[in-house]
Every structure is written in structure tokens, then in C-alpha cells.
């Protein structure tokens, strides 16, 4: 495991009402698998430091690393990344980290992805890897977000929809105009309508705030998905 690498901010792009994509140039970044994360370290003038984990939205070889950060109100690090950071600033990163919450193009089996809010970030990396590899593995992504303004990566994900990739949205507070149905949290019926059934034998990846992951994973188990086929990544919060 190598040490901290300097990461120069190349680009910042608004990604949602409260979030932003950060593109970093990281000389020495060894590349990463889809689903991995990194540790990001910030150092103040007086030496004070803070470290948080962020999933990597980009995938594969190369020294360009893309993150997407959602601002947690009253947070210490995320408001700095979403509001203060600008191109040319230097941060530090370490990674890639994690070898369990990953998808590899050699995996031939069907995959169900379930995201809550910014939990879509590592799953975007998987969808990108799936598209780049032209993998025939059936892929589905079910995204739960509060409102259309909160959805990360919506245009890119919608453009990737094809025979091998299906995308569904759950709008918990407000749906786009003309959307059938009423906004509300993910339910057993909603899951059954959108997700690959247990009989299809998918590997399931669930990512998001802790409360969302607990709720979604319980629905999946109740629907008959074997717990051993459900991989989870909890971002924190309640």
C-alpha cells in the first residue's frame, strides 16, 4: 500500500443541487477497479488534518481520478469540497482501497445495483466499466433520490441504457413532471417491479447512507435474495 499522493484539482463540475464532481490529476495513481474508494486528506496551514473516504467514479488505468461529493449539512470536509475547492488546489489521496465492493468485467453473472443518494458513485464506476467492456452481463441500476435536482449522473446514466443495462428511479420527495406514480421511499413492490428477481441469481450491490442501505438490504433479503449475494457499502449518517 503506497502512501499519500498529491492530487491537483483539474476540474469542478456541479453535479446536483448539493453536490459536485471533482476531477483530480494524481501522478502515481495506480488505477482502480470499479467500486473502490480512496482516502482523501486535507491539511490546514497550521498542520491540522482531516481524512474522509470517497468512492471513485472513474475506473481503470490512468492518473485522472473522478470523485462526486454530496454536501452533508454541518459537515467538516464535504462543504469544503463542494463549496471552497477550485481548480489548481491540491489535496492528497491514498488508494485505491477495498477489494470486496468491486465489480470486474470478467464477472459474467447478472448484477443488480441499488443506490441511495450519493451512494450511486461507486455504482456509476461499475456501469461505466460494464459499458466500456461491452459486457453482456445483465446490469440493472435502481437509484433512490429525493428530487430530480438531487440526482447525480442522470444524463450520463440515461444515455447508457441499452439491452444490457436498465435504469430505474425512485423519487422520494418529488418526481419529474409527468412521472407516473407518487413520490415515496423504496418499497417491496417497487423493488419487485424494477430489480432482477432472486431466481435470476444476481450479485447485488447496495450503497448509500447507512439508513438507506439497512432498509434496502432488508427488502432484498425479504424478497428472497441470499444474504451472501448482497454486498453493501455504507457511507455514514443515520
Amino acid at each position: 500500500m503506497s502512501g499519500w499522493l498529491a492530487a491537483r484539482v483539474a476540474e469542478v463540475v456541479p453535479a446536483s443541487a448539493s453536490g459536485r464532481v471533482l476531477v483530480l490529476d494524481v501522478p502515481g495513481w495506480p488505477g482502480n477497479l470499479a467500486g473502490q474508494h480512496l482516502d482523501l486528506r486535507l491539511t490546514a496551514e497550521d498542520g491540522y488534518q482531516a481524512v474522509r473516504s470517497y468512492s471513485v467514479a472513474s475506473v481503470g488505468a490512468g492518473e485522472r481520478v473522478e470523485l462526486a461529493v454530496d454536501e452533508v449539512p454541518d459537515g467538516e470536509v464535504s462543504p469544503y469540497l463542494v463549496q471552497d475547492v477550485r481548480p489548481g488546489d491540491v489535496l492528497e489521496v491514498r488508494g485505491p482501497l477495498g477489494r470486496y465492493f468491486v465489480w470486474q468485467p470478467e464477472d459474467p453473472g447478472p448484477v443488480q445495483l441499488v443506490a441511495g443518494g450519493s451512494g450511486v458513485v461507486p455504482l456509476v464506476a461499475m456501469v461505466r466499466a460494464h459499458a466500456a467492456a461491452r459486457s453482456p452481463a445483465p446490469f440493472r441500476l435502481l437509484c433512490s433520490v429525493r428530487t430530480p435536482a438531487d440526482a447525480f449522473y442522470r444524463p450520463e446514466l440515461e444515455a447508457l441504457v441499452d439491452d444490457a443495462f436498465r435504469l430505474d428511479w425512485v423519487w422520494t420527495r418529488a418526481a419529474p413532471p409527468g412521472w407516473p406514480g407518487t413520490p415515496g421511499r423504496l418499497t417491496a413492490a417497487g423493488l419487485a417491479a424494477a430489480a432482477l428477481p432472486p431466481e435470476a441469481g444476481p450479485t447485488v450491490y447496495v450503497c448509500g447512507p447507512t439508513g438507506f442501505v439497512e432498509a434496502a438490504a432488508s427488502l432484498l433479503v425479504a424478497a428472497g435474495h441470499p444474504p451472501g449475494r448482497i454486498r453493501t457499502e455504507r457511507f455514514g449518517g443515520s
Binding site: T43, A44, E45, Y48, V90
Partner: peptide
């Protein structure tokens, strides 16, 4: 030596 990130540290919490 760690790299200083411009303007970071305003929202820090007390260190224990």
C-alpha cells in the same frame, strides 16, 4: 511533508 490545501480548516472540530 503533507501538502497544505488552500483555505482548509475553517470548519474544524476540537481535537481530542
Amino acid at each position: 511533508m503533507a501538502v497544505v490545501s488552500r483555505g482548509f480548516g475553517a470548519r474544524r472540530r476540537e481535537q481530542d
